[in-house]
Amino acid sequence: EESVKIVRLVKNKEPLGATIRRDEHSGAVVVARIMRGGAADRSGLVHVGDELREVNGIAVLHKRPDEISQILAQSQGSITLKIIPATQE
């Protein structure tokens, strides 16, 4: 059973501070990098390897990473992410 986590981040004009990529094996959209000091890093709630399912209620599974980045870039104020946390080894 996948544990889905709802994360709310507050982002002003600054970038979210995370990059995403598509996992070639599973097809999932995952967090590739977290930039120090960005909104994602400061929240402490988003981690490399987390699978991104939704951004502000928009399912991202069938979107290209550049489309998802665009949605994230255009979002201001509160951003709600639905993520499946990376499995902690």
Rank of each mutant, 00 (worst) to 15 (best):
V4A: 10
V4Q: 13
V4M: 15
K5I: 15
K5L: 05
K5R: 08
I6M: 03
I6N: 04
V7D: 09
R8I: 13
R8A: 06
R8W: 04
L9E: 05
L9N: 06
L9V: 14
L9R: 03
L9I: 15
L9T: 05
V10S: 11
V10C: 11
K11L: 15
K11C: 14
K11I: 15
K11V: 15
K11W: 11
N12G: 15
N12Y: 11
N12V: 09
K13V: 07
K13G: 15
K13P: 06
K13M: 11
K13E: 13
K13T: 10
L16H: 02
L16E: 03
L16Y: 03
L16Q: 01
L16G: 01
L16I: 13
L16S: 02
G17V: 08
A18R: 00
A18S: 01
A18L: 15
A18M: 15
T19C: 10
T19A: 09
T19V: 15
T19N: 06
I20M: 10
I20Q: 00
I20E: 03
I20C: 07
I20N: 01
I20A: 03
R21A: 15
R21K: 12
R21M: 12
R22H: 08
R22T: 11
R22I: 14
D23F: 03
E24W: 10
E24R: 11
E24N: 11
E24S: 10
H25D: 13
H25S: 14
H25T: 13
H25I: 13
H25Y: 10
H25A: 14
S26G: 06
S26T: 14
S26H: 05
S26P: 01
S26M: 04
G27F: 01
G27R: 06
G27P: 03
A28V: 07
A28L: 05
V29N: 10
V30A: 04
V30I: 12
V30P: 00
V30R: 13
V30M: 10
V31C: 03
V31G: 00
V31M: 05
V31R: 01
V31L: 07
V31N: 01
A32I: 08
R33P: 02
R33F: 05
I34E: 02
I34M: 07
I34H: 01
I34W: 00
M35H: 15
M35S: 14
M35P: 04
M35C: 11
R36D: 11
R36V: 08
R36T: 11
G37S: 05
G37F: 04
G38T: 07
G38Q: 07
G38V: 00
G38W: 02
G38C: 06
G38D: 02
A39I: 13
A39P: 11
A39H: 11
A40H: 01
A40S: 03
A40G: 01
A40I: 14
D41G: 06
D41V: 02
D41N: 04
R42W: 02
R42K: 13
R42Q: 10
R42N: 07
R42V: 08
R42I: 08
R42P: 00
S43E: 03
S43T: 07
G44Y: 00
G44E: 05
G44N: 08
G44K: 08
L45E: 13
L45M: 12
L45T: 09
L45P: 01
V46S: 00
V46T: 00
V46L: 15
H47T: 07
H47C: 07
V48F: 02
V48K: 06
V48P: 07
V48M: 05
G49E: 02
G49F: 00
G49L: 00
D50V: 00
D50H: 01
D50I: 00
E51S: 04
E51C: 05
E51R: 06
E51L: 05
L52R: 00
L52D: 00
L52V: 13
L52I: 15
R53K: 14
R53L: 15
R53F: 06
R53Q: 10
R53A: 08
E54L: 01
E54Y: 03
E54P: 00
E54W: 01
E54Q: 05
E54V: 02
V55F: 03
V55S: 00
V55W: 02
V55H: 01
N56F: 01
G57C: 00
G57Y: 00
G57A: 03
I58S: 08
I58K: 09
I58V: 14
I58P: 01
I58R: 09
I58A: 07
A59V: 09
A59L: 08
A59H: 10
A59I: 08
V60A: 06
V60T: 10
L61A: 15
L61P: 10
L61N: 13
L61M: 14
H62F: 05
H62R: 10
H62M: 07
K63E: 05
K63M: 13
K63W: 06
R64S: 15
R64E: 15
R64V: 04
R64H: 14
R64Q: 14
R64Y: 06
R64W: 06
P65G: 07
P65A: 15
D66G: 10
D66F: 11
D66W: 09
D66I: 09
E67K: 05
E67M: 05
E67N: 03
E67D: 08
I68S: 02
I68C: 02
I68R: 00
I68A: 03
S69D: 15
S69C: 10
S69G: 11
S69R: 13
Q70I: 06
Q70M: 10
Q70T: 13
Q70V: 07
Q70P: 04
I71H: 06
I71G: 04
I71S: 05
I71V: 08
L72M: 12
L72N: 03
L72W: 07
L72R: 02
L72D: 03
S75E: 12
S75T: 13
S75Y: 07
S75I: 12
S75H: 12
Q76R: 11
G77V: 05
G77R: 09
G77L: 04
G77H: 10
G77K: 09
G77C: 06
S78E: 14
S78D: 14
S78M: 13
S78H: 12
S78F: 11
S78Q: 12
I79T: 09
I79G: 03
T80Y: 08
T80C: 08
T80I: 11
T80F: 07
L81S: 04
L81N: 05
L81D: 04
L81A: 04
K82W: 00
K82A: 09
K82N: 07
I83G: 03
I83H: 03
I83P: 04
I83A: 04
I83Q: 03
I84V: 12
I84W: 06
I84E: 05
I84C: 11
P85T: 07
P85G: 06
P85S: 08
P85D: 04
P85E: 08
A86L: 08
A86S: 12
A86D: 07
T87W: 08
T87D: 13
T87K: 15
T87M: 12
T87F: 10
Q88T: 12
E89H: 13
